[in-house]
Amino acid sequence: MNELILHHYAMSPFAEKARLMLGHKGFSWQSVNIPNIMPKPDVVALTGGYRRTPILQVGADIYCDTALICDVLEHRQPTPLLYPEHQKGVARVLAQWADTTLFWAAMGYTLSPKGAAALFGKQPPEVGKAFGADRAAMRTGMTSLRPGDAAAAFRSYLRRLSTMVEEQPFLLGSAPCVADFSAYHPLWFCRVINPAMADIFEPTPHILQWMDRMAAIGHGTSSKISSTDAIAVAAAAEPEPLTDDIFQDEHQIELGSRVTVAAESFGPETTEGILRAATRTRYTLERTDERAGRLHVHFPRIGYVLREVRA
């Protein structure tokens, strides 16, 4: 019941971040392949609504968002470090920038009309249309960079990152940390998944060398299981006991209240449940699914909105 189960799909950049972190830690893990667009009934059975990729399952505990997955992996196996001593703050801040600002510049460039044509050009037209419609629904209310603005920003960010790896192998020193994994995955999507757009890296050879070092980390050891089997694992388990330090009240919402949690921006779907914990760093909701049983679904505080459900 304590095995790590990653729900992901091959071309997901954030899933690549998680796969590399699993490899960095040397974990053996179970792999569940999920759809890259909705509907995702087996994912929603576990999360209650959240549909972003990936999610990490440990028995009946479901961890959403790679920022929280980083914390889970670090707690489960402290070395090698994701948060380097004396640089934890800067590593987290750089990772958050990479997962948001850098990510959207990279995606705006890589999935520009030219990039989308290259990525989906050999597939039936309905595949690209379905993917575009799905992601447009996830961006409801967001302001997206225009392709030209995204390309200009991405080039600038690549130059800035390049200066960080000219005289050292990784962004903050001799070993990779959370900042490296966060900065790598949107660049990986461009270089590996849509290589027709990868000429943007030519002026920054140090970035390519750094990316090769990151890719060499690998994904650890994984074995495939079905989503049905993963749901059965959850149904046979009970959520792990919560720690004593479970409540930091910022919303005047009491533990035991019925609440919803949703991402601030990308992916507006909500998860509803009973608030069981609101720590300094995460929310925990209890919910019950007819197939998966009683679950604890965990979200990071940063980037997510907590609301009370009022009758």
Rank of each mutant, 00 (worst) to 15 (best):
P84K: 14
F103V: 01
F189L: 12
S222A: 15
H86L: 13
P54Y: 10
R307V: 04
Q87K: 15
L208M: 11
R146S: 12
M21H: 06
T53M: 09
V178E: 03
Q209A: 11
A18R: 00
P268R: 15
P39L: 11
A230H: 06
R276G: 01
H219Y: 14
L208F: 00
D180V: 02
R213G: 03
P35L: 10
R282N: 08
V93D: 02
S222L: 05
Y109T: 12
A196Q: 13
R52C: 02
I246F: 01
A18S: 10
T47D: 03
A105C: 08
A179V: 08
P268L: 14
E272C: 10
S144Q: 10
P39T: 11
A133D: 14
R19K: 12
L158D: 02
Y283I: 02
A15G: 15
S31L: 05
N36Q: 12
S257K: 08
A230C: 12
I246P: 00
E16P: 02
D65S: 09
P241H: 13
K40E: 06
H8S: 15
V165E: 04
R159S: 15
L187M: 15
I302V: 13
L111G: 01
A15R: 06
Y157Q: 14
V259I: 11
S222G: 09
Y304P: 01
E250V: 06
F181I: 00
T143W: 01
T270M: 13
D71C: 07
A91L: 09
A45K: 10
P169M: 13
G48R: 02
P41W: 13
D199I: 03
S265L: 12
I55P: 02
A117L: 08
R146P: 01
I200N: 01
K122L: 06
R307D: 06
I225M: 14
S112D: 07
P186Y: 04
P80F: 09
P113E: 13
E250G: 00
H298K: 03
S162W: 02
A230L: 06
V127K: 13
L145Q: 10
M38H: 10
F181H: 00
D65T: 10
Y63H: 14
V192K: 07
C177Y: 00
P241E: 10
G48P: 01
Y9L: 03
A262Y: 07
A95H: 01
T260W: 03
E16C: 07
K224W: 04
A234E: 03
C64M: 03
G121A: 11
E240Y: 07
G121C: 09
G141L: 07
A277D: 07
Y157L: 13
E16K: 11
M214S: 05
Q96S: 14
Y83D: 04
A118D: 04
T143I: 13
V44Q: 09
M142R: 04
S12M: 09
L208I: 07
M211P: 00
A45T: 07
Q248P: 00
E166C: 08
S265P: 00
G108V: 05
A278M: 12
